[in-house]
Amino acid sequence: MRLKRDKLMPILFIMPSVITVGVFVYGFISWTGFISFTKWNDVLPNYTLIGFENYRKLFANMRFQIDLRNTLVFTVIFVISCLLIGLLLAIFLDQKIKSEGIFRNLFLLPMAISFVVSGVIWRWLFNPGSIQLGNIGVNQLFEKLGLNFLTCGWYTDPKIGIIAVAIAAIWQFSGYTMALYLAGLRGIPIELREASAIDGADKWQIFYYIIFPLLRPITFGAIIILGHISLKIFDLVVAMTGSGPAFSCDVPALFMYDTTFRGNHFAQGASIAIILLLLISLLIIPYLISTFRKEA
């Protein structure tokens, strides 16, 4: 009798969470998926099914094509820069640096701040100025330092708009990547390095043959985290730039919000959300499956 109750209790206690997640995550995603196949492109719901029509229209839409390209550029720049800067800083901080704690804490500070806050600050820093004001923000700083060739239109320049947004995101997340790598480096037993050093390996060889392979799981995990953040990016873009000139800063998450709640295209908006979910799933599901297998 007791045994049976002991088997039931845990299930009873985890059930509320399971049901809630079941409804609010999986149920709602299915609901959104259903909407994306309907004709609900007006204020009032219309659940007439029209197959893949919304998806066909979506991929023919130039704004969406631009969004996909922006997402790709943003993701590549953001993820690679965070990894490189994070690794570099972690290795440097691992060299028995004086006041390491201060550096580390300052590098990580942006992580604690809301995207909306950083969006507001970077909007002013990357403001290119105007004919009355001349250079302001970062451009003015460059001008003062004699680095005039670096001044540009930032997020107002359709060619590089999305890169300006990426810089703000890198500012926020590279310190975090540093912390991940630093934890990884600290986890490598010192004996391992010392042993290799005795074997006559130089510093570079130790990094290349011993340390980098050991950091691979961290890089993998960081790519998952940074990658899904960059695909989802919304708050930062809204607060910093909006869609930008000719949609140069636009991203699918913002397009979804606009299409749904401004343009009243609920089914169209749902289809954007589903594509976004699929993109993220491509990244996340293999990761979840692999960790699940490891556990089981």
């Binding site: 290119p128 105007s130 239109g153 107002t156 320049d157 930008g244 000139p245």
Partner: peptide, 10 residues
């Protein structure tokens, strides 16, 4: 040329 950086009043 800088139209994309400006709002109408700017």
């Amino acid at each position: 040329t800088d139209h994309s950086a400006l709002t109408w009043d700017e």
